[in-house]
Structure formats: structure tokens, C-alpha cells
Design a protein around this nucleic acid. Structure first.
Lengths: 197, 197
DNA sequence: GCGTCCATGTAAACGGTTACATGATTGC
DNA sequence: GCAATCATGTAACCGTTTACATGGACGC
């Protein structure tokens, strides 16, 4: 269960369940999401196992908070996870299934519109990551290759998001162009001369 | 529930639960997976709803099969799904979380090895898709831009896999190179001269 | 006779989401 | 007074995986 280890990682700095939820939403949402209703029971489970401990604390608004932090045993468990195999869950892409079956609509314009909407989606996410990247570069002259090693690890995950989303946008653009060329009235493609073989 | 619609799409050609499982494993595994224990009850549910119908059939080995096919009502449901919004489930990448926290190990060589294993994984999948791509190109001179529209849709999903996995491999290579340059004994990078601004 | 493939299912567990419930505090 | 934010939790449900169960037919 990856969430447990992710919490162990995040709780190397003390935080409440509520804090963690915010961090998922605002910080690392591009690779993991979690709901409060899942976070709270998981924290209790980790505490029972001795991997985190908690103390009551005051909150600005409302009643008390409970702040958790990873214990040495928790750190050992985290390190074991990190030394293990990369966790590739099998990826499911419903939107790819939609493209796969889209010929059912017998309407290429519809597919083009669908790709347009996907492009918007990916481009928006890409813009957000580019913003993060730019801000970081402006704030730290060591960015990216002279950062301290700990921050390099974060930068590498950001870089993955950038490369991946760029590929997604490229895919949409290419697909839209290729389908546009098939629309009635489109300039016919020059037939590709085969290379001498 | 995307699986239902994927089955409706696949069952435009008649197939048994067992056939479908094979197709997930050998055909469209790069965007969806399903177990037999999930396929069989789903087929029954779809039949009860009138979206597929079934008939008993003989099997080569073993006892009888049950072959399902999508009904006109099922096709209408499928088309509605296809005309709707692209389904982006929130993506979870446990291996990115591992990279994110990998500084905990305080051992850059370990991170490099981790990236090496990830590279292998992605490169293997990429090779498999490239093989598919090459075979298709050899078998059909219309590949890729003069394919009939129905096959173009399939080609576009394959193209996504290729672009995406290429980006993943590129990411690993880049990361390994950048980390290698930080290892003690590595040739120090030439400091990047800032562009005149 | 034994393993593999064909073929269909059920039951329990798991990870995650949605809905529901409660309550204090601050700013408008 | 009311909405938003801070804060913690439970219960029901949903989609998926893992484990279990059964049995016929073919090749070695």
C-alpha cells in the first residue's frame, strides 16, 4: 500500500491529517491523490504499528489538531520501500479506450474535437508545471543542476511531469493535424516517395 | 464504470469472457487491464441491462463457451460514452513518489540504480510497441496515413504509447546523466555561462 | 497419468471515493 | 447571522485483485 509509505515520507516533517491533504492537493497532486477519509484511518493504522507518533496541538481556528511525525521505525520502513523495486501499477487510460473505439461514431470531426479537449486538459496541466519550474529557477540560481541532492530528487519528479505532458500535447497536435488532412476539402498529402530499397 | 463501455466496444465482434481476457492481455494491455473474475460478472450485468446478449457455443477444448455480442441498445450507450468528456482518472505514480523521497537513502548511486531499473522497464515496453508498429507498417503499405479511418483510431492510441514511453526513457537517461555528473570523480560540469540579459 | 489450455464462475479482501456527521472560529 | 476555513472522523459503496473451486479435452 503506497499511501502508507508516502505518508511516512511526508511526515518526516510534522503535520496533521488536514495539512497532508492540502499538500496532496497543492504540492504532489501530479503523482498522488488522497482523501481525508482515507488519510485519517491510515494515520491511526501507522501509529498503531509504531511508524508514526502523534501529539495534540492547538489550531488557529476550530478545535485541536493532531500532529503526526515519522518515528525511527517508520523511517526504516520507508527506506526499505525505497530500496525495493520501482512500483509500476498497471496504468489505465479510459480516454485512450475512448479514442480506440471512436470510429463507432463515424465522424472524424467528432474525434478531432475530442482531441482538442484532451489537448486543452494536458496543456493546462503543463502550464501549471511550467509555472512551478520557472518560479523555482527564478528563486534559486543553483537551479537545476547545482541544487543540493535532496532537492534534485524533487526536481527529477517535476521534470518527469514536464516531459510527459509535453509528449501528450505533442500527440494531440500531431493527431489533430493528421486527421485534419483527411477532412474533405483538405489539401491532399504528397504521396511519400519510398526510400530506395 | 469504464470497463462496461470497453466491453461494449470490444463486443461489437462476438467473444466469450475468456476471449476478452486474452485481448486485454495481448491487445490493449497498454491502456486497460481486467481479470476474468471481473469480466464474468460484468458481462452478466450488461446482459441484464440489455446492452449485450449471449448464446451458448461449443469450445475446442473443455466444455461449452458463452459468446456475447453488443446489442443496438448497447451501441447507443457506447456512442453516448464516446460523445461525452474524455475520462481522465487521476493518475497515481508510486515510482515517482519513490524518487521524490529517495533522498532519504542519502546515496545517489542507489537513485541511479533505481533509474536504471525504471529505464529497463520502460524500454522493454517501448520495444514491444515498436515491434507492433513495425509489423503493421510492413503488412500494410497504407500505414500510417492512408489507413482507413477505423484503423487510424487504433494507430493513434499506439502512437500515444510510443511517444509517451519515449519520453519516459528520455527522462531516465537524462536523470542518470545528470546524477552521474555529481558523483565524486566525475568531470566537473562547465559552469553554464549566463546569456547576456 | 500429468500438465497445459480451454472455460466459467464465487468469495473475500483491499484501496479508494462519496456521503454523512460534528463542531469551533473568523471575517463579512 | 452566515459562509468559509480549520479540523476530525465514520459508513456505505464501488471497482479491482487475489484466492479458491470446478471440470472437460488434448498432447506428451
Amino acid at each position: 500500500m503506497s499511501l502508507e509509505f508516502i505518508l511516512l515520507g511526508l511526515l518526516r516533517r510534522p503535520a496533521s491529517g488536514y495539512d497532508l491533504k492540502k499538500f496532496f492537493d497543492e504540492g504532489i497532486g501530479y503523482f498522488w491523490a488522497a482523501e481525508l477519509s482515507q488519510i485519517y484511518p491510515t494515520l491511526k493504522r501507522l501509529e498503531k504499528r509504531g511508524w508514526v507518533r502523534s501529539r495534540a496541538a492547538a489550531s488557529k481556528r476550530g478545535s485541536g489538531r493532531r500532529v503526526y511525525v515519522t518515528t525511527p521505525a517508520g523511517r526504516r520502513a520507508l527506506r526499505e520501500w525505497l530500496r525495493g523495486e520501482p512500483q509500476f501499477g498497471d496504468e489505465r487510460f479510459a480516454y485512450l479506450a475512448q479514442v480506440y473505439f471512436m470510429d463507432e461514431l463515424k465522424d472524424l470531426r467528432q474525434t478531432i474535437r475530442f482531441f482538442g479537449r484532451m489537448r486543452d486538459h494536458f496543456a493546462t496541466k503543463l502550464d501549471a508545471l511550467r509555472m512551478l519550474d520557472r518560479r523555482w529557477a527564478e528563486a534559486d540560481p543553483r537551479y537545476p543542476d547545482d541544487l543540493p541532492t535532496s532537492e534534485l530528487h524533487l526536481q527529477l519528479t517535476l521534470r518527469k511531469g514536464l516531459l510527459s505532458l509535453e509528449a501528450h500535447v505533442l500527440w494531440c497536435d500531431e493527431a489533430i493535424r493528421r486527421m485534419g488532412a483527411r477532412l474533405p476539402g483538405a489539401k491532399p498529402r504528397r504521396p511519400q516517395p519510398k526510400r530506395a530499397s
